[in-house]
Design a binder for these strands. Structure first.
Lengths: 159, 159
DNA sequence: GTCGTAGTTGAAGTTAACTTCAAGTCAAGT
DNA sequence: ACTTGACTTGAAGTTAACTTCAACTACGAC
């Protein structure tokens, strides 16, 4: 009966870094921010469970969609009981992301179309040119924020 | 013959701020960065020519497309002789921007499609999931930069 | 000439998301 | 036991694009 306990099943920082693509410093940062957790060796070094790889994949996906780390943290905090997002969690969350992507794509498309109708015109009127005007998205943007799209102003509260 | 000289044809900072939508502090900042220029009164106050409104519209349009201020500065610096972009300049530059927008839209669309094919799957495999993987755009991003899209990482050197 | 509003400057602050550094400790192969 | 490479921490630095502040000066209507 050779059922080894495999206590060595835990990953070191560099293991996780290599396998996730995140820098070790980012992993430590995420831990400070409460997005990740790890056990420690008697000597104080981090040891990660393999599930962090999935969590990191989740984080990367969310960031790719344009979510801020705060939003990712909120999403993770909103998970029922446990921690690592399950298939169901993922499905629910990603469905919401889809809408976000759709909005971003739509905004960029409007911008491109505006550009098309402007090429050769050169008006660039602050009053009428659809392109240089902070037209539709404008409103939001918190205090101190410039006008708009920067399509990835991920912090844009589109509400 | 009442041809008034209209020396009062110059705009103050707040005039420009109101008409362009940029904060006065942003105008001063742009001037320091060499994107804008103004004459001064004997007392040292700024007085802008109306053409800055067009320049600001240009800047806003460029930023909306995702260009960094450095890139805007470079674009302005690359203009033949004068300063304010002419209709022709605008047409040439904006045609280049269109490509940029197309790329951004394509990247987001790929991401969305990846999401669609992932919803319900929940694999989020770092190796195979198209969504959490730093798949196609990855390469670029300078040192210290995370993996990718943040579709508006405006500083992405897509070269 | 007075007064209140508007403008000036340089320096420092802001936010996000990390990275870099210094100084020192741990893990593990030989 | 030794050595080397990996790891730890807190603090400070980084970048973009501005904003805020403090202390002070100019403009211009009356």
């Amino acid at each position: 009966m050779v059922l080894s306990m495999r206590t060595t099943d835990l990953l070191t920082v560099s293991d996780v870094a290599k396998r996730s693509g995140f820098a070790p410093s980012a992993l430590r940062f995420y831990e400070r921010e409460g997005l990740l957790s790890a056990t420690r060796t008697s000597g104080g070094q981090r040891r990660y469970h393999r599930s962090v790889l999935r969590q990191l994949a989740f984080i990367r996906a969310a960031r790719n969609v344009g979510l801020s780390l705060d939003e990712v943290a909120a999403a993770l905090a909103a998970l029922p009981d446990g921690r690592t997002p399950t298939r169901a969690d993922w499905a629910r969350l990603s469905r919401g992301w889809r809408g976000r992507l759709d909005e971003q794509i739509a905004a960029l498309t409007r911008l491109r179309d505006g550009l098309d109708s402007c090429i050769g015109c050169g008006c660039l009127s602050l009053k009428t040119c659809a392109f240089s005007n902070p037209n539709d998205i404008a409103a939001a943007a918190g205090p101190g924020a410039a006008y708009l799209p920067r399509p990835l102003r991920s912090s844009a509260r589109i509400s």
